[in-house]
Amino acid sequence: MWEQVRLALRESLHRAVFKVATLLPGVLALVVALLVSIFIGWILAAILRRILIALRFDARVERSGMANISDWSSAKTPTFLATRIVFWATVVAGLFVGIAALDASLSSGLSAYVVTYISKIVAAVVLLIIGTIIARFLSRSVLINGVNMNVQHARLLSLGVKWLVLVFTAAMVLDHLGIARSIVDLGFGILFGGIVLALALAVGLGSRDLVSRSLERDRHKTPADEDVVRHF
């Protein structure tokens, strides 16, 4: 009996060592593929940067009217954006090659699954970035316009808009990744519905005073600065 146990253990150990030995070249290939792709990506990005600078790409993009798109992000130039896209595309391609090598050594459907999921992750990251940019843009718009309209709680409004967009983005990202989809749907529905209801109640209950104050202000309006000061 002990002989059988020993044999089983030896076979198990043999299988494990065999698996690791099969996996190791794949892992090594993954690492090498990743390093090579980073190197190639860096070289390609550097070459592209030189070419775009020589072609005055930023100025051309600005003249073509596409500058409005870059306005949504901060101080990044179109050249910077293009070189980053090339760099990361090369790295992702290298990652795919590495995973394919790993998959061949594992002889399983991991590669197809990972590739599918990575594409989802990439889309989710893009969603997250766009959502964050839109949240920042809208929050600043609300804050600045609110201040210029003499809204005392402009900062609160801007914060509300920012978090509304961020929560909306987070729900979209999680839904896209398929993580706790039902919980996200339910939670987001409750949260969003709650916010809308709260706003409706706040406006409904608070607007009476607001309207009366506004009317009162108009009634007692004296010749104000805008009647005397002319900006142009």
């Binding site: 804050l143 201040v147 210029n148 003499n150 402009a154 004296t222 104000a224 600065d225």
Partner: peptide, 23 residues
Amino acid sequence: SDTVDVRRMVDAFQLGESNLRDI
């Protein structure tokens, strides 16, 4: 020339100072 009541403009400036400092 007319004289002007600057309170509203000063209020607008002060509101801006308290809210737009980050920007």
